[in-house]
């Protein structure tokens, strides 16, 4: 696209314009980076230095004690074993939930595009409503149901909830991707006698890596970062890391250790930040595809 700065044809004006544009962009970038910088530096300062210094001062003495404490020995509620249990607890329900919801979403998308039947479009619309509802409206019945199923406060319960309410999104992802697969390909395979699963396995799956990556990243970020389901449907040391972090930061007893809070926040953010850094392109793609409907 054209750019208005370049259109100010005079040389001097143009250079000045470029400087203003770059200056603004860099200033805003610094603003976006500031919280991360503050979190990192605060987490490696001593408490004395935090109390005496200021937010953006670099640490005088670097110490990783706050990190060790946040991981291994800080108290969240009654439990004083740090965030490590919560971290692994998050891992233990996020991974199965991501895999299961992606797998089911792939099959749903496959049916909704290449094996359409009378009424299948209506079914798709019916399912899509799941992307729009505020989850508050299902929390109370779900709490009751999980209790009946014996899944309250369990890892399986969280996997179940995240799969159930993730399916609308994963189905949407795969459906929108498979829509562009030419139907002739499937028709030809059918004439050759290939069945439903053979076609999926041999033809569709090999085409799917891009959308699988997008879907997995989207689901991983959503479920790892979830707080609502975690705080309502889990308890004790099985709580996800977001819930533990919130408990840690918002307990008002004892001395407030800001460095430990910040280390804990970074620990909670690391997995999704890592995914963003190594696969940012797919992350953005999922964001725009998934949330246009959400």
């Amino acid at each position: 696209m054209a750019d208005f700065v370049r259109a100010d044809s005079a040389g001097g004006g143009r250079a000045l314009g470029r400087i203003v544009v770059y200056g603004l962009l860099i200033l805003v970038a610094l603003y976006y980076l500031m919280p991360l910088f503050v979190m990192l530096t605060t987490s490696i300062k001593t408490l004395e230095e935090i109390r005496a210094g200021n937010l953006i001062a670099l640490p005088g003495t670097v110490t990783f004690e706050a990190w060790a404490k946040a991981w291994g020995s800080v108290c969240t509620g009654a439990d004083c074993s740090g965030l490590k249990n919560n971290f692994w607890s998050s891992v233990s329900f996020v991974l199965p939930a991501v895999v299961i919801s992606t797998l089911i979403g792939a099959f749903n998308g496959y049916v909704l595009t290449l094996w359409r039947f009378k009424g299948s479009d209506l079914l798709f619309t019916t399912m899509l409503v799941g992307c729009f509802i505020p989850f508050q409206v299902v929390l109370l019945p779900m709490a009751q149901t999980l209790g009946w199923l014996g899944l309250a406060n369990t890892t399986s319960g969280l996997v179940f909830v995240h799969v159930v309410y993730g399916l609308a999104f994963t189905t949407l992802f795969f459906r929108n991707f498979y829509v562009s697969v030419p139907e002739e390909m499937v028709k030809a395979a059918r004439i050759d006698g290939a069945g439903f699963f053979t076609i999926f396995w041999r033809i569709i799956l090999p085409l799917s890596p891009p959308i699988i990556v997008v879907c997995v990243i989207w689901q991983f970020t959503q479920i790892w970062n979830d707080f609502l389901f975690g705080v309502v449907f889990s308890g004790g040391d099985r709580q996800p890391i977001t819930v533990a972090l919130n408990n840690l930061v918002n307990t008002s007893t004892g001395v407030k250790e800001y460095n430990v809070d910040m280390a804990a926040a970074i620990i909670a953010a690391l997995p999704t930040l890592f995914v963003y850094i190594v696969a940012g392109k797919y992350f953005v793609r999922g964001l725009t595809a998934g949330s246009v409907k959400g």
Binding site: P35, N225, L245, M262, A265
Partner: peptide, 11 residues
């Protein structure tokens, strides 16, 4: 956007 709102809130 990759961060949890809880992390953002804490920061």
């Amino acid at each position: 956007m990759a961060l949890s709102f809880i992390v953002t809130g804490t920061a």
